[in-house]
Simulated scan of single mutants.
Amino acid sequence: MGNIGRWFKKLTSDDAELEADALTEEADACGAEHADGCRKGQRVTLQGRLRYVDLHPNEAQAALTAELYDGTDSVKLIWLGRRSISGIEPGRTMRVRGRVAVQDGQKIIYNPDYDLMSVHA
């Protein structure tokens, strides 16, 4: 897409579309897969932004849950036995690696390896 095409797209797109495009471009630049193409059992590397982070305690075990959005789809991240992880917060960009599971149509990665990306001021 040329400069005029990009300019016109920015002019006619809403903020959510622009954010999705930017996240997808960042994932492409680092060689990460797209979440919309991930399948059950596949080992993947994804990069995106955390939409939410939540603690789900139960009697047996706590679990820290987050949703990673890469501009194409979202993947639920679940760290079993964790109540918090420093730096894991809504709005944070991160790269994760792990095996995709699917439950009730939702893509999940349990206990993913992760890298927190630098925070831009």
Rank of each mutant, 00 (worst) to 15 (best):
G2H: 03
N3T: 03
N3A: 06
G5L: 12
G5F: 12
G5R: 07
G5Q: 14
R6G: 09
R6K: 14
W7K: 02
K9A: 11
L11I: 01
L11T: 07
L11S: 06
T12G: 04
T12R: 02
S13H: 06
D14H: 01
D15I: 02
A16E: 15
A16R: 05
E17Q: 15
L18Q: 11
L18E: 14
E19C: 02
E19A: 07
A20W: 10
A20H: 05
D21M: 00
A22R: 08
A22Y: 11
A22G: 00
L23K: 09
E25Q: 09
D28Y: 13
D28A: 15
D28T: 15
A29G: 02
C30L: 14
A32R: 03
A32N: 03
E33C: 13
H34N: 12
A35H: 07
A35E: 00
G37W: 14
C38Y: 10
C38W: 04
R39T: 14
K40Y: 15
G41S: 07
G41C: 08
G41P: 09
Q42E: 15
R43C: 07
R43W: 09
V44F: 06
V44T: 02
L46Q: 03
L46C: 10
G48Y: 12
L50D: 00
R51P: 04
Y52D: 07
D54F: 09
L55H: 13
L55M: 06
P57T: 03
P57F: 10
N58R: 06
A60W: 15
Q61V: 05
Q61A: 09
A62C: 12
A63G: 11
A63D: 06
A63Y: 14
A66L: 08
E67I: 00
E67W: 09
L68M: 11
L68I: 02
L68A: 05
Y69L: 08
D70P: 07
G71Q: 00
T72I: 01
T72P: 09
D73H: 05
K76R: 07
L77V: 03
I78M: 09
W79D: 01
W79F: 12
L80N: 03
R82T: 03
R82P: 11
R83E: 15
R83N: 15
S84A: 12
I85L: 14
I85E: 03
S86E: 05
G91C: 04
G91H: 13
G91Y: 13
R92Q: 13
T93W: 12
M94E: 00
M94A: 09
V96R: 01
V96I: 11
R97C: 02
R97H: 07
R97N: 04
G98C: 04
R99V: 08
R99K: 10
R99W: 05
V100H: 08
V100S: 04
A101I: 06
A101F: 13
V102E: 08
Q103K: 12
Q103S: 05
G105T: 03
G105M: 09
Q106I: 09
K107Q: 14
K107P: 04
K107E: 08
K107C: 11
K107F: 13
K107S: 12
I108P: 10
I108C: 03
I109E: 00
I109A: 06
Y110I: 01
P112F: 06
D113P: 11
D115E: 09
M117R: 00
H120S: 12
H120I: 02
H120Q: 14
H120G: 05
A121V: 00
